[in-house]
Amino acid sequence: MATTSTHAAPTARPRAAWPAVPGLRLPPTLLVGGVLLAVVVALAVMAPLLTPYGPLDQDLLNAKKPPSWGHPFGTDNFGRDVLTRVLFGARVDLLIGLVPTAITFVVGVSLGAVAGYFGGRVDAVLMRLVDIAVAFPFFVLLIALVAMLGPGLRNMIVAISLVGWISYARIVRGEVLVARQAEYVLAARTLGFGDARIIAGHLLPNVITAAIVFSMADIVLNILLGTALSFLGLGPQAPTAEWGRMIQEGRQFIASGEWWMTTFPGLAIVVVAVAFSLIGDGLADLLRVEDRV
């Protein structure tokens, strides 16, 4: 089966040779998501320049004002400008999304690759750890960890990192188990390459796609986790501008009609989530090695 049409004269098929020419033929989803994310990051970075207010500046005389020219997103119950807090909140929330994901990605991918490649005892120990972790509901485990470490931004990140690597380890281990039987890996071994070189140079580039794509969803997940923990009061403490916390604080005013305190941070979460999902889809397209056509 693998032999069908293999003899099409190779010169007749100058296929777009990613990664030799990156930047060409980017999937549209990746472009849109990337632009969206770039805008969010730019807004977060330039927040002080974009608004005359500080995220913590109170103006009790102007509390709970609906959106207006002076306060496009309105003000909250302390009279703080909601737009300003959403912009500054992006810094915290992107941090919550990116830092634990980066940590869990590196740790999970390395452990998964090592376990899958060497198998045997290393693998057995790792898989037992995974089994134990998986036995608890993810969120319950997370809450327990934060409760143990104490609330706060840093501990929240530590807690998410302690639990999150497992998904990466499982994904990569599964792929490595298959890929290490591939003849190009056997060839690398007969050529006398070291294990580190084989894992980093031959296995990982071929198995990491799934983990990268997953990490985009994971960033969103971590932001949502962060906001949820903040919502429960386990995240960054008041008065930090953070979207989950803002929703939690504004929640009590929804009933009385002051919708803007919760809606705008909620929308911000949606925008970031959409950006990363689009990037994830686009990367999946881009990184897929073209099948043996």
Binding site: S5, H7, A8, A9, A12, R13
Partner: peptide, 8 residues
């Protein structure tokens, strides 16, 4: 050589 592509 090798058999040709049936595309062309």
């Amino acid at each position: 050589g090798a058999p040709p592509s049936l595309l062309d």
